[in-house]
C-alpha cells in the first residue's frame, strides 16, 4: 500500500517516466547511429529486447544514394514436356493507377527483396510456391529460373547542353542476369511443402 502511494506521487511518476524516456531515446538513437564498435557495444544489452518488440528502426529513406538502375524480375518455369511459362512479377509502370496502389506489397517484395542476395535464403521457398501455384499433375514443372532484367538510368550530365533524359524516354530493361535456378523434387508440389 505504501509503495503504491509512493508511486502515485506526481514527482515519482514523472521521474520514473522521464527515466524511461531518456533510456529509450538513448538506445534508439544509438541504434540509428552509423555502424561502429561503439554502437555495437552500446546496443548489445537491449538488442534482443528491441528485436523481440519490433523497436528496431532504420530511416535511410532515399539515402545515402538513390539507385541508378531500373529493373524487374521474372520467373521462368520449365515443364516436363519442355514448354515454358513466364511468371512476371507485377510491373508497376504497366499497371493502371488503382492496381499500382493496391499491389504495393508486391512491388516492395519483388523489387526491393526478391532478386537480391539478402533474400537468397528464401529463393527455394519462392520456387516451391510458384511450382505449387502452376503445378499440373500431368505435366509438372521441372525447373525454375529467377531472372533479373535491368538497365542503368542515363547519367545526369550537367556539362552537356541537354543534361537529362526525359522520364518518357527511359531505356527498356535489356540486360539479364539469372540470379537463381531450382530443380524441382516430387515432394515440392505438396501443399505446405518446406
Amino acid at each position: 500500500m505504501a509503495l503504491t502511494n509512493f508511486i502515485r506521487k506526481p514527482q515519482v511518476k514523472e521521474g520514473g517516466l522521464s527515466l524511461i524516456f531518456v533510456v529509450f531515446l538513448f538506445f534508439t538513437i544509438s541504434w540509428l547511429a552509423p555502424e561502429s564498435t561503439l554502437r555495437t557495444n552500446t546496443i548489445e544489452p537491449v538488442k534482443q529486447f528491441y528485436l523481440f518488440w519490433g523497436l528496431d528502426q532504420n530511416w535511410k529513406l532515399f539515402s545515402p544514394e538513390i539507385r541508378k538502375i531500373n529493373f524487374h524480375t521474372e520467373a521462368i518455369l520449365t515443364f516436363a514436356d519442355g514448354n515454358r511459362l513466364i511468371v512476371e512479377m507485377p510491373r508497376m509502370n504497366r499497371l493502371n493507377y488503382w492496381d499500382r496502389f493496391r499491389l504495393e506489397k508486391f512491388r516492395k517484395w519483388s523489387v526491393d527483396s526478391l532478386p537480391w542476395p539478402d533474400y537468397k535464403e528464401f529463393w527455394p521457398d519462392f520456387a516451391r510456391y510458384i511450382g505449387r501455384k502452376y503445378n499440373n499433375n500431368n505435366n509438372q514443372p521441372q525447373s525454375l529460373s529467377l531472372n533479373l532484367y535491368y538497365i542503368e538510368i542515363p547519367t545526369l550530365d550537367l556539362n552537356h547542353p541537354h543534361p537529362l533524359v526525359p522520364v518518357t524516354e527511359m531505356p527498356p530493361h535489356t540486360k539479364i542476369n539469372t540470379v537463381f535456378f531450382y530443380r524441382y523434387q516430387p515432394a515440392d508440389f505438396k501443399s505446405g511443402a518446406l
Binding site: F62, I66, R67, K68, N70, F71, H72, R91, M92, N93, Y97, R100, R107, V111, I153, L156, L164, V165, V167, M170
Partner: peptide, 12 residues
C-alpha cells in the same frame, strides 16, 4: 533526377 526516374515507382 534519379528518384523521378525509378520506373517501378512512377505515379502521376
Amino acid at each position: 533526377y534519379y528518384a523521378t526516374r525509378l520506373d517501378d515507382m512512377f505515379r502521376f
